[in-house]
Design a protein around this nucleic acid. Sequence first.
DNA 1: CATCCACTGGAAGATATGGCGA
DNA 2: TCGCCATATCTTCCAGTGGATG
Length: 426
Amino acid sequence: MALFDREDYIIRNRDILDPEYEPEDLDEREREVNEYASYLRPIIKGWNPNNLFIYGDTGIGKTVVTRYVIRELLESVEQYDDIDLNVIELNCTNTSTSYQVAVHLVNEIRKPDSEKEPLTTVSSERDVLSETGYQSKRVFNELYKDLRDLGGTILIILDEIDNIGNDDEVLYELPRARTHHNLDVKLGVIGISNDYQFRKNLSAKVKDTLCEEEFYFEPYESAELQNILRKRTESALFPDTMDSGVIELCSAKAANDSGSARQAIRLLRKSAELAEREAINSNNPDMLITETHVRNAVTEIQKEEVVEGMHDLTIHGKYLLLAITSFAAEGDTPVRTRRIYERYTNLVEQFSSKPLKRRGAHDHISKLNMKSIVRDVDTKGERGNFNKYELDVAVESAIEALEADSTIGELTKLRETAEQNNVIST
DNA sequence: CATCCACTGGAAGATATGGCGA
DNA sequence: TCGCCATATCTTCCAGTGGATG
């Protein structure tokens, strides 16, 4: 009957458990907020901003704290007429080179002011730069020009900057733009990174300037995660919908793994959803979120991540995954790369496509490995130097994901053969 | 211990794609 | 359209590497 009014046994406001949700107060990151603010203090005095490098693992609040502190800063700055502060924030997730960072910065600056405006106004995009085609010098010149036009104090925030890998030219150029290109602006760069290694690998000349100030974000402790979760659940869930120990378990799982609040929250949300589903199905309004729900949520989330990871595999990545999966279906894993490659070649040729050379195929296997779809097995004690791989996910998940990808015709046929294999061997 | 086997993974060059300006 | 430009993806080449073997 009332199909749609049952949705709220447990979850009151789902948005609050969204990974993107930014809470008003950041009780558990006080140290970082204060330290952050101290580095930005010169701005309020009208001085040149410090360059700042921030690092710490994912999901421990680097971006949230940054946004929070910047918000406060912008508010404070309004009191002073003599400070014209412009903040440019760029998430570098999809930028693999300095060139692209420069392009995106230009586009970010040229974005229409009206923040709230939906992504419709194509007409105003005439000045947007595309991602290739220009000389890099040209792009940098455009960038300097735009920075000059902005004027005042400019703070450039480069989130997830580690994505640019070894190509740190932009990090060298930006802090020097003022002197080398005669910009009459006060310019500060804030680099945010998940990857400690990235900082070490920066060229010396970049390290000198960009890292003139730097600090870590510590992973959350279990107790801190508990506080965060408690606070969130107060408004996100209805009262008394959790069995005792649920928050503790979510926190402990996340703290042991990554110390990530994002992970803890995601886990709690998934648990709540599982419980809610069960409540609806069993028509039991008294259903509580239990530790069992949390444990199920853990596996559920893992599965989701893998399927997600498989989504953007290239065609060869999928063929290779198919090859490994078929070995797995035969109970013949771990397999060494040599045999994987042989089977992969057969599969590809069978569908009159051209297989990659050995080296290229190995790169795809490594990618599968990095995405935790496949894992390499310790081969110590065996002859020679080689790798062995097995699925890092349930065979069913892999097959499911391959099936879900039936948009590609050739793969569809391949999937059928794989299924036959499965049937034969199980 | 020297040497070999079978494989790994870095580096550089080739190719294909998509975009710019003239 | 042509000559450039940046980039992703492959191929080619090859210097290691770990254990086995004599």
